[in-house]
Every structure is written in structure tokens, then in C-alpha cells.
Computed example of a mutant assay.
Amino acid sequence: MKARTRWDVVCTVEDLVPDSGIAVWTKDGPVAVFYLPHRLPALFAVSHTDPFSGSNVLARGITGDVGGEPVVASPLYKQHFSLRSGVCLEDDGVQVRTYPVLLDGDRILLELPVSADQMDTQAA
């Protein structure tokens, strides 16, 4: 059975900073949204939590390109995470969660899981 999801507005285009990330709070936890205007697609979203430190810092990481792969380097221990897959380039056994992201007019939407509690609330 496929997990239920929904698209939630998390910010607007005006909130984005070119070649950088911003942190947004979602029902799934903190998420880092990155805007890389020189790439297609230009928007990426990954968990804001650095799996090596447990700190919410990835939106503050440095974006770049490693062998054609768009990445963010954690500001703490400098591991690179693929913005497409979430896999750590230095340790492929570690990864951060990625989220589908969509531009709708000037709104940025993320596809987020719907918990059982949220399904019960929506059905009521």
C-alpha cells in the first residue's frame, strides 16, 4: 500500500536565496529548501537535519557540484549530500531524506507524508 502524501505550501519564491538554502518547518520536521537557478531543476529539498551531528543545519551548508551532482556540504563536518538522492558522497551508507518540490506560481510546495492522525482529521 502506497503511503499517503499531500502537497503543502512551505514558502514563496521571494523567500528563496539563489545558490543557497532556507529552512522551513513542516509536519514532517525541518526541511532545507535549496534554489540553484543555474540548474534544471532549480529547486531541491532535503531534511534540514545533519545525520552525523543530529543538528538542524543543512540549509546553512554550502551548495556546489561534485562530478555533476548538485550537493550541499554540511557546515559542521563538511560531508557532501546529493540534493537529488540525499546520499552522502563520503559515506554512501548515510543519507538524508529528500522531498519532491514544486513551483506553483510564486509558491513553493513540498510533497509530504500524511500521518494516520492527519488522515483521521481530514476524514472528519
Results as ranks from 00 to 15, higher is better:
G61S: 02
R60N: 13
S53E: 09
V24P: 02
H38E: 14
A45M: 11
A73K: 13
G29D: 10
E69S: 00
P18I: 03
D15W: 04
D28S: 15
L16W: 07
D65M: 14
D65L: 14
V46F: 02
P75C: 04
F81K: 00
G68Q: 09
V71S: 05
F34E: 14
P75I: 04
G67L: 12
N56D: 14
P30F: 01
G61D: 02
V57W: 06
P51D: 13
R39H: 08
V66G: 01
L83Y: 04
Y35S: 08
S20A: 15
G64A: 06
S55C: 12
T26A: 10
G29K: 09
F44L: 11
D19Q: 14
V24L: 10
T49C: 09
P70L: 06
D65K: 09
A32G: 13
I62Q: 15
L83G: 07
E14G: 07
S20K: 05
V57D: 03
F44C: 11
N56Y: 03
A73P: 07
G21V: 03
A32P: 10
D65T: 14
D28W: 09
K78A: 08
L40W: 02
V24I: 11
L83P: 07
A23K: 15
L36M: 03
A23V: 01
R39M: 12
Y35P: 05
F52I: 10
S47K: 04
P70Q: 09
H80C: 11
V57M: 09
V31P: 06
H48P: 01
I62T: 15
P37M: 05
L58N: 08
V66T: 10
V72P: 03
S53I: 07
G64H: 04
A23C: 15
K78V: 00
